[in-house]
């Protein structure tokens, strides 16, 4: 938050839902004016370790004691009660597939000092997994994480409207949802929504290489092919898929938000755009 204070940003201003702007309120929404003439990677996250930023891994759980994960702030598993209410209980199972651990490890590699939490929405059984996914996202948004990594999607249309509403509410609450684009030509959510940052893969080996896509819906391409990752039971594997490109961007978002906590998701997207390898040249 030190930088936030330096920028003159006041958290109480975030609570101003300006449906309209009276004349005498103009001064109260004055924004930090010290953006550089050119936004560089050095400005965006130079010197940042991610310290202070809170990242949530919405996935299969995370193995907290894997050396490449380095501990978790919290770990919960989501289930549904008899009336469909969302229940978040302490998760002691770790990771049921290994995938969540891989995502956490990638975030940790990029933002070594950020806080990582796990919200497990997979593993109990397959049936009803869409409703659990929604419940997990709702829980994560309510927790006020800075970044939610969603390396998964649902194809169920009935869930799309609720997911959309959740994605928008996260966007306005300053929680950035970073979501995997689908590798196959199918309709799935939430990555298609403009209030999230959608991520596909490129084939470069550089974890900090990312490209802005001028032809959305996929907005960013990141390192997602032949990625070395931690897996459950202390293992390490080489994997490919958009679901591994996504935590690279989640990690970079954590670096940026740790240094500039005043940024809204809208502004953060701009910073990502301006510092993309094919835009700012990776400078």
């Amino acid at each position: 938050m030190e930088d936030a204070v330096a920028h003159g940003w006041d958290a109480s201003r975030a609570a101003l839902p300006a449906w309209s702007l009276p004349k005498d309120a103009v001064d109260r929404i004055a924004l930090p004016g010290d953006w550089p003439e050119r936004v560089t990677r050095e400005w965006a996250w130079g010197g940042s370790t991610g310290r202070g930023a809170r990242v949530c891994i919405l996935d299969s759980g995370v193995e907290a004691d894997h050396p490449s994960v380095g501990g978790l702030e919290t770990a919960v598993v989501i289930s549904l009660g008899e009336d469909g209410e969302v229940i978040a209980s302490d998760d002691t199972e770790g990771d049921v597939s290994g995938h969540g651990t891989a995502c956490a490890g990638i975030v940790r590699r990029l933002a070594p000092e950020c806080s990582i939490s796990s919200v497990r929405v997979l593993g109990a059984n397959f049936t009803g997994s869409g409703a659990v996914l929604l419940g997990g996202l709702r829980y994560a948004v309510e927790q006020g994480f800075d970044v939610i990594n969603m390396s998964l999607s649902t194809t169920k249309k009935p869930f799309a409207a609720v997911l959309h509403e959740l994605a928008d509410s996260a966007y306005f609450r300053r929680t950035v949802i970073v979501a995997s684009a689908h590798n196959m030509p199918v309709e799935s959510y939430p990555w298609r929504f403009s209030s999230v940052i959608s991520v596909g893969s490129h084939e470069e080996p550089d974890p900090f290489a990312y490209f802005y896509n001028p032809s959305p819906p996929v907005e960013i391409f990141a390192h997602g092919v032949n990625v070395e990752v931690p897996w459950s039971d202390g293992r390490t594997l080489t994997v490919s898929g958009n679901s591994f490109a996504t935590p690279h961007i989640a990690g970079i978002c954590a670096l940026i938000l740790a240094k500039h906590p005043e940024l809204t998701p809208f502004q953060l997207k701009n910073v990502l755009y301006l510092t993309a390898t094919n835009v700012g040249g990776g400078a």
């Binding site: 997994s129 998964l152 649902t154 994997v239």
Partner: peptide, 10 residues
């Protein structure tokens, strides 16, 4: 469950 392809080597 995630409707997502995955590739694992080694």
């Amino acid at each position: 469950a995630t409707r997502t392809p995955l590739v694992v080597e080694d």
